[in-house]
Write a protein that binds this DNA or RNA. Sequence first.
DNA 1: GTTTAGCACTCTTTTTGCCTTAGTGCTAAT
DNA 2: ATTAGCACTAAGGCAAAAAGAGTGCTAAAC
Lengths: 361, 361
Amino acid sequence: MANLEKPLSQRKKQILKAIIESHIANGEPVGSKYLMENKQIACSSATIRNEMAELEAMGYLEQPHTSAGRVPSEAGYRFYVDTLLEEYAITTKEIQEIHDMMSAKVGELDQILNMASKVASSMTHYTAIAVKPKTDQVTVDRFETVWIDSRRFLLVMVSSDEAVHSKTITVSADLSATDVLQIADALNRCVAGRTADEITLPVLMELESQLKNPALMTPVMKLVYDVMNRYDHGELNVTGLDRLLEYPEYSDVTELRQLIGTIENKEEIVTLVSEAEKDRNNVVIGSESEVKVMENSSLVFKPVIKDGKTVGAIGVIGPLRMDYARVLALLGTLTGSISEMLDGGTQPKLPKGEVNDDGTG
Amino acid sequence: MANLEKPLSQRKKQILKAIIESHIANGEPVGSKYLMENKQIACSSATIRNEMAELEAMGYLEQPHTSAGRVPSEAGYRFYVDTLLEEYAITTKEIQEIHDMMSAKVGELDQILNMASKVASSMTHYTAIAVKPKTDQVTVDRFETVWIDSRRFLLVMVSSDEAVHSKTITVSADLSATDVLQIADALNRCVAGRTADEITLPVLMELESQLKNPALMTPVMKLVYDVMNRYDHGELNVTGLDRLLEYPEYSDVTELRQLIGTIENKEEIVTLVSEAEKDRNNVVIGSESEVKVMENSSLVFKPVIKDGKTVGAIGVIGPLRMDYARVLALLGTLTGSISEMLDGGTQPKLPKGEVNDDGTG
DNA sequence: GTTTAGCACTCTTTTTGCCTTAGTGCTAAT
DNA sequence: ATTAGCACTAAGGCAAAAAGAGTGCTAAAC
């Protein structure tokens, strides 16, 4: 079990790499004879066996039972991803495919992300996810209101991260158009520019005194809090869940159930992705994550950056023997292509102007 | 196979009902002896066998193989649902449970529906869905604009179904606050009150002539079309997908894959539900639906009515041997409870006012 | 000292045959 | 019209046997 971080000989690396790649391709334990014959390793099967025994002692390989070939351990995959993996040379055809599918959807960020997840799933043959991460605390810098009818008005909030949020508020009291303007005034005076923490009781009392109709306090403030605190407490869109069933590792029903459960539940995965650093390749192998249920699965994802900020992520969930190289490459170009679409504020594709969703500026 | 619509004798009905209910409970083919012993049928197993043979000839039963018991056919389930089924007496405890879980979420329609789907799934032990049906074509009755910054403004649309939609529009040109007001003016003059079909080339030309900056035409009109045509082209939220795996009928991987695929794909199911009549109990048994892949599953759903209009639906997907009686009863009280919450426009729970999502006012 | 050939060993998987079981259909008696 | 009785059928379970795959180890070769 203990992996003492000894540097591996060149041949050990070669063998480990060959084993992992075979196993990724076939899903079956790989044996010494197979390696010798199919993987051009320049020594006999006996030598390979010796090397494998050592690799197993180091914790990189496992043996399902005495007379089976070897299977990579989590540590093995980790080592592979960190040091052995050769960059997958993405084909121009694949690039073309990505661009074709993506350019169809020049629209809201949500739509782009969901489309990207579709692309990711169909190109990698794994289940894909689009994540809108939890966002940090923001302030609302400007409030506007639009009168709708005597019972409803629209509250528009431009927040410090340049997002625009708007929500309809329904009240039981009668509202005039001027009432509604006055509400915006009061909010701009008392609340604008503050973080949630800075909205203390005195601030609220001041606000209440400025409102002609204090009955509005509750719904309005609820909304403001929502926007500032965790309006975006993350979203997760799943595509190609059925693809899990392509892999025999998910033929165990109870395990599959649990995994589908966690994916559907969203919370844990959103947290995991939200807490990731934005410039790394994020590869979570099995029990490396605290998400218990993912013990036999890997999650690979890549943030989508806009103007230097993480605005989303695209990821792929599959068995431990995921084709990391290809997935990483595809996610790379995919997120790159999205960032390109997003950056600069104006997209090159639409000549004149374009449309964004609420709150995604 | 041929079911000649002969009226069934009382005893045949009794036997058919007993078979179906046993099969729903156990999932196994049921035999004559079992029926006699456990279901209080006042005749010998031989007689039951004779009756079963006839019921099979009529198409209500099937036999997996020569020496197995009988299993209900789709026609059998249909007959059961239409004429045999006794109303399930929902317990006060269940009613309590529903109300408890639902009252936690007095909020937007979307949230209510999704919560309801959670409740439905957890109480029935089947996969549940919340559907927002496709809506008919609407007109936009009023436009408002809010200036955000030199490159963005918010377009607010109040549509004929009283929903409020708002979207940020980003443009490459510089915008002043007055530009933005002028856009609203132009839209109100040319487009307000028309259906999508009525927006013809002359109307568009008129609009363009009124816009100070014709570059805005494309994004603005795209948005307007979206709202009017199929902004709501239906939504489907799934809960408890993992519950499918509780039932042995889904242990066939390829079938399960297909079903999960269709559920995830949403389109077909949304259409199916959207086209349903609003006052019937909607029970789709296996291949009754045109959705190929649902051949071995049933879908039971019930619309959610607000002010006489269908605003959503809650449904349950499971194996053919679904506990129809209980599911129907639970969906009934569930949707009833939602309609109650929604009706009247203002919810009694919030004393002062409340918040609605965009477009669901 | 490393590599390799060879072989015994281990464990899994597949095959085979046999027996048991569940439930039927039919016939003849009630 | 009902029922008892019985022969018949197909599936499922079990155990022994056979086949297969791959290892670890030893002893020889480089």
